[in-house]
Design a protein around this nucleic acid. Structure first.
Lengths: 234, 234
DNA sequence: CGGTACGATAGAACACCGTTCGATAGAGAT
DNA sequence: ATCTCTATCGAACGGTGTTCTATCGTACCG
């Protein structure tokens, strides 16, 4: 395991010289460019201009690599969230923080799959969890209610993110097919279902067609927050 | 692709004779016994007493296998949920249905990772989605609100399930370490954090330690449903 | 200075995975 | 008897995470 930060520039031109920073940065770049399936040790090594086994000096396994890469970008999100100054309404603060987190996941859908998986490695995620919980301390709730409230919120965020992270069939990732057309195809299938057999699907298919992910998330979040406000005012 | 159900018993003793049913049943058994990582084509083939390639006659890829296996057990859950007779309060019905679904996922945490991934293949999941949505038709809501409400609920269910599905470090899976002890270890780490730096974590660590997954889910669900009730009564 | 310990790198090999190919067995129809 | 179509299977292919072992280069120390 690495002890110090790598403090020097590269040596000669035969051997590569990495650093935790560069490993994570390139890993994130791979994830951003082509999704989780593109992040392999061989691809990462090539990008770093080194050998495969070298990566194992910084990271004990692929799981840890993913955890650390996730925490690496969560660090940035954490800074954004900590920069939010508390307002009058704690629940409003919760809302802004959650939306900030969700925005970050929207840009990097893979985040949802690894976020908060292992707080031992993901120090920033733990800190984010705490920051997200702090507004609840200003609400009239029991400790258990606070715990459940923040769990509920992260559940909504992660749950929505997982929906998103469902690597789209590679067609939209390559840009060959737009997301709207992708949704439209499903909508078309649904519309052909018998209206008596599937009354609800029939009712909402137009809403599903071309729906906005952020709006859907905000709706789910607001339901939870409305419930929470009710609880805090009781 | 298979046309008919396999209608006969096995032939001689050299070649194995499968059926869609048996393939999915054994796949589910593997998933139940040792989690997703244990479901390999080789392991499945051995269990079926046949060759690896045979499975591809029933299923085009591993993703499809996972989708069909998931939908196979969702079929049972669907029956349970359809058996629920509507009560006076649609929101109560939503609650009972959601809890029924969550109970099923609690027993098979892997379900959460594949549920509703592809409604083309997962016919039962689509039907379940519709059934879950029907109570909202009795509420005074717009179509969009109904769509968002059911999305929110499935998000909470799936989000909670993903938390669960986080294959525990194999120690608790083997029964060597109890879940409580596993949680306790994390709690111990959290307790050592500075109380000023992590005020929220400090506040809720006792609640986290030994917490019940069902209770946590129910709390999140109830917040959402409370918000929904507010919306429907407005 | 020369030697040595250690931080850091890397190539080759291993075991396993999903998937494909080509061959072939069996049963019914012609 | 031949043909066709369903269903099966062993062997191989390319790719993966991971480990083994050997090495380079630098900092330290006698």
């Amino acid at each position: 395991m690495p002890r110090h930060q790598n403090r020097g520039a590269a040596g000669g031109r035969r051997r590569a010289s990495h650093s935790m920073e560069s490993v994570l940065t390139e890993a994130v770049a791979l994830l951003d460019e082509a999704g989780p399936s593109a992040l392999t040790f061989r691809a990462l090594a090539q990008r770093l201009g080194g050998g495969v086994a070298s990566i194992y000096w910084y990271v004990a396994s692929k799981d840890e690599l993913l955890d650390r890469a996730t925490d690496h970008v969560i660090g940035g999100v954490l800074a954004d969230i900590e920069a939010i100054e508390p307002g009058d309404d704690p629940i409003d603060d919760l809302r802004v923080m959650s939306l900030t987190l969700f925005d970050a996941i929207l840009v990097r859908p893979w985040l949802g799959n690894y976020f908060m998986r292992n707080t031992d490695v993901q120090g920033n995620a733990l800190r984010l969890y705490d920051t997200l919980g702090q507004p609840t301390l200003r609400l009239k709730l029991t400790a258990r209610q606070r715990f459940h409230a923040v769990s509920a919120i992260t559940t909504v965020v992660v749950g929505s993110a997982v929906d998103l992270g469902q690597e789209p069939p590679q067609e939209v990732l390559e840009g060959a097919v737009g997301r709207d057309e992708f949704l439209g195809r499903f909508a078309a299938t649904w519309r052909e279902l018998d209206a008596d057999d599937f009354p609800f699907v029939h009712e909402i298919v137009d809403e599903f067609d071309g729906h906005d992910d952020i709006e859907q998330f905000r709706a789910a979040l607001d339901l939870t927050l409305a419930g929470l406000r009710l609880q805090a005012d009781a």
